[in-house]
Design a protein around this nucleic acid. Structure first.
Lengths: 341, 341
DNA sequence: GTGAAAGCGCTAACAA
DNA sequence: TTGTTAGCGCTTTCAC
């Protein structure tokens, strides 16, 4: 058959086709499709109509190739991280407001960051945004020599690479203060293992407990960023410290906190009556009605806006900076007054 | 300053730069970069070295523009669906094996499917793969006139659009059989509300219970695809049928099942001792150690392979087909023998 | 084995 | 207001 591809014809219409059909030059069609000034309203309307009839849609690759700039911001994100989803979603409108498009490149167990970044380079993105990158500072610096680069939700470790993140210390402090306010004293922090931000949060926790004069009642145990890590940490803790178990827990993040809650439930320990639990991220998970987790919220909207703003600045040649936002404690149902002893 | 962008120079090196630096023609560089035959090993090595020194990376837009075909398969996926992440991850290698690249376009609450698909068209993808699309059959048919289209995990409703999915009826039947084998009789199905596949699964459930002669002990209640839906459904059920509560539950999907488990936990009802629960999808969630949910598994690897295979066929002009894979019951920790009454 | 030249679909000067 | 022209960075004949 002549018309392959579901009879859609052998190829998509191009600007040349539209120009021919409308009896004008391609340049004029270009002007009209871009909404640029320099065409009569009458022609404009006619060409638009012809284009629609033909089902013409501009070829973005050709557009971007021709314009010396791609006006593309590349985003590497992890497919399995709900918070990355929250961020990506907000990057689109933020970028559009500055006249940029977003190119997505995913990171997954079978697809490493290098592969994802390679795609962004081949697409000639003008800047790279790495969500929760696991790259080391020297590698980031190398990448930064190729293209303006930022990391999100972690420090970059090099002044060549920008960073937008929330103040981990402040976030953990807010969590500690909240529990102290509620009368808790024996407070446990389950750290993030080798996840980015873990060290800062653990240090912040210890410092704040000291500040309140309860250093001796503070404990930090090894955890990690997933539910399983939370499960492991709390199980260990409960099994080994029956006598003096904590009344308040600050988990590394929401997923970790959810693991903790799950174990508590299974053991018949009620939250918040027996133990208060605080997460970190304000991910969609934490907001689910049945979880309703008190958490330290990172404002995805604000982060996205700052990321795009910094990207355009870096593209314009400004030096990258470290932008630190203040997280917000969001009390929900998993924290309450400390039980009377 | 002359060198904007972190001193990386004003522009990225092009093939012309490499050719000049190596003292050969661009055509030869092209041959070498693509690994095409027609260059001496010696030149090959020298040009490669020069390219590396310059940090040359081919411009994919220019490549794809020049080649009449984009060799791009566009994928529209939902950012917040873990199973979509599983699929996307597997589409990369499957596509690469056929010489295609993947272009990602995300769907989210603030970014609808039309927007996502528009991007795929502008990128001149040769085929569109829509994960869990919510588009109606007529709209899908319209899209199919533009480009070869497939939907995944649902029927397309039009023969113009391909579909790769698992047999919902068979999956639910396997779940029912499993419970029946374990001695369960009073079995509840929490359906998926208006989610794709919900009707098929509910019908399959009823039919299979009838087949086993336990139609009278089968119940179907309204649910949905999220944890909250599961919470709502089971709460209702427990509150209204204290006397004859089910011993087995088949939830619409894993997330729904997890909501159910959460409520059971909170009420001190043990699973599987008191109530067995089965999910659907075998998402990462279900495999978490502390959840360890019995579920009906959809083989993401196989789905991805079939999707790419069908995409290449459709691109070659073949008519789309409906590919139905058989799901696999995966027994884990949330199902066990029915309690003795 | 290598190079010259044309052109993919578009935009942007510049002319008319 | 409209058309002409010259590329963007690459691949692909077709000569040499």
């Amino acid at each position: 058959m002549a018309a392959a591809r579901n009879g859609q014809g052998d190829r998509r219409p191009t600007m040349t086709d539209v120009a021919a059909a409308a009896g004008v030059s391609v340049a004029l069609v270009s002007i009209i499709m871009r909404g640029a000034p320099g065409a009569s309203d009458e022609t404009r309307e006619r060409v638009r109509r012809v284009a629609d009839e033909l089902g013409y849609v501009p070829d973005r690759r050709a557009q971007k190739l021709r314009q010396s700039r791609s006006r593309l911001i590349g985003v590497a994100f992890e497919l399995q991280q709900p918070f990355h989803g929250d961020l990506v979603e907000r990057l689109y409108p933020a970028a559009a407001a500055q006249g940029y498009d977003i190119a997505l490149s995913s990171v997954a167990p079978t697809r490493n960051e290098q592969a994802a970044i390679g795609d962004l380079i081949r697409e000639r993105c003008e800047a790279a945004v790495l969500l929760g990158s696991r790259m080391l500072a020297p590698d980031l610096a190398t990448l930064a020599k190729r293209m303006p680069t930022q990391v999100v939700a972690r420090p970059s470790g090099t002044e060549l690479v920008g960073s937008v993140r929330t103040d981990d210390t402040a976030g953990i402090e807010a969590a500690v203060d909240h529990l102290i306010d509620l009368g808790h004293r024996r407070i446990l922090h389950i750290d993030g293992g080798d996840a980015p931000g873990s060290a800062e949060r653990a240090a912040g926790f210890a410092a704040r407990m000291r500040h309140h004069g309860h250093a001796s009642e503070a404990r930090v145990v090894a955890g990690g960023p997933t539910e399983s890590d939370g499960v492991r940490a709390i199980t260990n803790t409960l099994d080994t410290s029956e006598a003096s178990r904590p009344t308040g827990i600050v988990a590394f993040n929401d997923r970790c906190a959810i693991g903790v809650l799950d174990v508590l439930l299974r053991r018949g320990i009620h939250s918040p009556e027996d133990i208060s639990v605080i997460g970190y991220d304000d991910s969609r998970l934490s907001r689910l009605a049945h979880i309703n987790l008190t958490t330290v919220a990172q404002d995805a909207d604000k982060i996205a806006t700052e990321v795009i703003a910094q990207a355009t600045r870096q593209i314009a040649g400004e030096a990258p900076t470290e932008i630190i936002l203040t997280p917000q404690l969001t009390p929900r149902a998993t924290t309450g007054r400390a039980p009377v002893e």
